[in-house]
């Protein structure tokens, strides 16, 4: 049974909307009748710190956290954060990265070797420009839903299930922008 649990590890920087994305994913899993656990640590979300959310779903889930080598999917909303958590990925797991760069506090410039380190550690990494796609969808803050669309390619939910989960979590007047963002993210990975 433990083997069947799906582990999605979402990483990024405070303020990028990681928690909303993991809420939508967990809602979709719950609506399918699965056991779900979702864990993150509050507090640093607004303060530019490194933020992660663990989402696990399946028939029976115990621990709410994903540990090294267990993630089926590592989805990072920021380039360097993917590298920070690369050891979380299970053998055969997938990595999706938003190529956006956010300079960490205390650093004056962005490190140059992130892509090369990533290529060495995880050659199959999927890179997408979620910021560009979010703008295309209508709002830069939709980066999180673009990334949700991207991960959806590897998860077993229908478009209707995703739509229902998105609609229940985002403000009414932004539903269409968010659905567009989701679709752009989804096709960016499929392409």
């Amino acid at each position: 049974m433990a083997g069947k649990t799906k582990n999605v590890f979402i990483a990024g920087v405070g303020g990028q909307g990681i928690i909303l994305a993991s809420e939508i994913l967990s809602d979709a899993a719950l609506a399918k009748g699965l056991d779900v656990k979702k864990s993150e640590v509050h507090g640093m979300a607004q303060r530019g710190g490194s933020v992660v959310s663990h989402v696990r779903f399946g028939e029976e889930v115990h621990s709410p956290v994903i540990t090294a080598g267990e993630a089926d999917l590592l989805v990072s909303f920021e380039k360097m954060e993917a590298l920070r958590w690369v050891q979380a990925v299970a053998p055969g797991g997938k990595i999706i990265v938003n190529t956006q760069e956010i300079v960490p506090s205390g650093q004056e410039v962005y490190p140059k070797d992130i892509d090369s380190q990533m290529d060495e550690r995880a050659p199959g990494t999927i890179r997408i420009d979620a910021l560009k796609l979010a703008k295309e969808a209508g709002h830069i803050r939709a980066v999180n839903v673009v990334m949700l669309g991207a991960m959806s390619h590897f998860l077993d939910f229908t478009m209707d299930e995703w739509r229902a989960a998105i609609e229940s979590r985002v403000p009414k007047k932004t539903v269409e922008i968010n659905v567009k963002a989701f679709e752009l993210g989804r096709s960016a990975v499929a392409a």
Partner: peptide
């Protein structure tokens, strides 16, 4: 773990 600068809260 990869070598990545820390990203402390600010």
């Amino acid at each position: 773990k990869a070598k990545v600068p820390a990203r402390p809260p600010v």
